[in-house]
Design a binder for these strands. Sequence first.
DNA 1: GGGATAATTTACAGCGCTGTAATCTTCTTG
DNA 2: CAAGAAGATTACAGCGCTGTAAATTATCCC
Lengths: 334, 334
Amino acid sequence: MAKVRLEDVARLAGVSMKTVSNVVREHPNVSEKMRSKVQKAIDELGYRPNVLGRRLATGRSGMLALAFSDVSLPYFAELARAFTVEAGRRGYLLLLEQTDGTLEGERAVIETSEAGLVDGIIFQPTTMSSLEIAQHREDVPLVMLGEVPAPLSVDRVMIDNVEAAEAATAHLVRSGRQRIGFVGHEETHLSSTSSQRLMGYQQGLERAGLAVDMSLIIPSRSISAKDAAVAVGKALDGGVRFDGFLCRDDLAAIGTLRALQERGLEVPGDVAITGWDDISLASLTYPSLTTVAADTTALVVRALDLLEERIEGYVGLGRHELVPYSLVVRESAP
Amino acid sequence: MAKVRLEDVARLAGVSMKTVSNVVREHPNVSEKMRSKVQKAIDELGYRPNVLGRRLATGRSGMLALAFSDVSLPYFAELARAFTVEAGRRGYLLLLEQTDGTLEGERAVIETSEAGLVDGIIFQPTTMSSLEIAQHREDVPLVMLGEVPAPLSVDRVMIDNVEAAEAATAHLVRSGRQRIGFVGHEETHLSSTSSQRLMGYQQGLERAGLAVDMSLIIPSRSISAKDAAVAVGKALDGGVRFDGFLCRDDLAAIGTLRALQERGLEVPGDVAITGWDDISLASLTYPSLTTVAADTTALVVRALDLLEERIEGYVGLGRHELVPYSLVVRESAP
DNA sequence: GGGATAATTTACAGCGCTGTAATCTTCTTG
DNA sequence: CAAGAAGATTACAGCGCTGTAAATTATCCC
């Protein structure tokens, strides 16, 4: 079956192309008579509008790009799901782009976004500088996610990482922990995410009158459970004692948990652990993880709200919004 | 800065649009003189080709859709990552579609694919019937993934689930397990995936001379670690004894692990567990999971090979291919 | 150096659709 | 019942690009 075009339908129905177009798009000013006549032709021919043609004509592609480092990280996977669903509800399709957290990858995202393929882009950078982000073509609406400093001109949605980290630290302190470690940040090139969480950790300790002990701060070769396990294991084997861990994210927490259990330490008996992100597996480890949970729904909704406003033509300084978070208390740090 | 079109570049460089187009696409027959002249104009204007225009003209969108139930499931997230990367290597962008495993969702995928937006689609259905899949418009190349029976006309890549399940079962038997349970299939509307794995489980038991005991077969309310944990917990609390579990997937295995640990049972001492998918966290649970690992790279590469061949115009009966798998032996079932 | 061949470059028609503006109907209302 | 308003329909240009085929220029060989 050759492809059916708008024109074919118009010819069969004996009306103009525009009328068919109006019927297809449910334009209000179409008489019932026309509508049914055209609909009949559409059904008969099995016509499907070609999205590309429409998009060229309207200048809207109906697609959004979602760009972050790596979907295989559970937090991003869950974020991707939430965005796909909500974007779908708003009539957009989602293009997935991964940057691997590299500068090249992030630049590629910006490039792609300029090719007119997508109407807007939701971007969680890891390394790109705020300056460079600000220089992207202004005609492509962009909303940032995450902790990288946002240029004044760009919208951004995040949670207050410093505050949340401080709250989690306070929670550990409250349960009597004194030697609280921090695990999972990068060994070099600290990301903004890690640095804000570290800052909150430090504040939390200081506010509790505890000294920051550098030997308790354990970086990880990569953002993964495996490397966190290795790093924590090495520290433990090196004789460092901990009674609590503020982990940069749930993956680090899972790695930490394993490193402790391998060595016969009890969680939370000997050591308490908090994670970050509240990935769905966080409630299924044993013990389950106490973790910082961003209000993902709010995050997604606000990000898309801001993006749609930009797409509708809003101009103005970047709006920098915070969405709520909560500390979900589970077994690993009651 | 208003958008720059091909025509603007052509005018500035004093050449035809087609020549600019040729330069942009690195067409071989362009003289060096022309190339540099045009390139200069391109740089001066900051021209970026508009992908939509190109695609309308060539009839190729350069996009592929990847459709499955839910990216937030780790296996799919990891699959999505592999596909994005490999598709990117081949010059395609990936559109993510989620079906939630519902018939509606799966139909929507087929619909979208017909709108000419994507050049092809990689689709892992859960419930759609082979007949209905076969009826999709033939002009949209489609490659199936997974265990749903594939129509004769459609390409499909999978691993031999029955054989793999049998192998995993045999592995459990070999370590002396006698009361091996199966966990994680649907309570009603068994998916093809579950049913094939159950079949392999049954074969494995029978071949070892063990009887199939229905009380050891534990369905789960949903494909999730949480529901698997609940289901297994209920069985254990109901007095059913197990010394091994073949789990439908790693999530079920994680849930099972937790259910056992909560009740003070040792893994693998009292009970051995195998999972399926080898998600990245499988090596970081404690104990780590023995699991069936599909050769994802091969899967992705073959799926894209087949799809590209279809896009290039290959017609012919559906090719049904198997890719290798292996049983990764870790702590949960040594 | 002339004719033939190969290499470049160009003009132009679309790809499939929608916006605009113009035209034609139908409906109100004094 | 006619004039004007409102509603429905249409013709057509054009979104930004590339394929085709024709036109032009360069290259080759005896």
